[in-house]
């Protein structure tokens, strides 16, 4: 019995998850950012500075120095980095809701527009939101 060559076609889906929104789409509310500002003052300002410009051993959390390092990543990346490794003296102590408020404050401080729906506290949802330093061209 002759063997026929077995030809298979394999379709490979793109492995890279696609983001569906960006920080320019109004992904947090003003009230949420205000709550986050209170969290920031209590938990973060002593190292990162009251004006988010960073300190001797802590990077800035606003302005070009912050955006250069985070542009093209996602809000989910920023959320997880913060949730897992901050605050430096007691990493992981902040509940997800407070971390989401905090991220909303950081986005607000970096002059991204507020919206009508609060930032989610689930990482997977936040990974759909891309951080772009520059506003999309109209």
């Amino acid at each position: 019995m002759s063997r026929r060559p077995f030809i298979s076609l394999v379709f490979v889906a793109a492995l890279t998850a696609q983001t569906t929104r960006s920080v320019w789409d109004g992904v947090f509310t003003a009230d949420q950012a205000k709550r986050g500002q209170e969290v920031y003052a209590k938990e973060c300002a002593s190292c990162h500075g009251s004006d988010l410009t960073g300190g001797e051993s802590a990077p800035p959390l606003a302005g070009p120095g912050f955006l250069s390092n985070w542009t093209s990543l996602t809000v989910g990346d920023l959320f997880e980095r913060t949730r897992v490794s901050m605050p430096g003296n007691d990493p992981g102590k902040l509940p997800r809701a407070q971390v989401a408020d905090l991220i909303a404050y950081l986005l607000s401080a970096n002059r991204f527009p507020e919206g009508k729906v609060e930032l989610d506290k689930q990482t997977e949802a936040l990974k759909q939101i891309r951080i772009d330093a520059e506003a999309p061209k109209k």
Binding site: G55, E56, A58, S68
Partner: peptide
């Protein structure tokens, strides 16, 4: 359109 030489980076020291 401008040719800007390397600017260096502000940031923490």
């Amino acid at each position: 359109g401008l040719n800007i030489p390397r600017t260096g980076q502000s940031g923490y020291n």
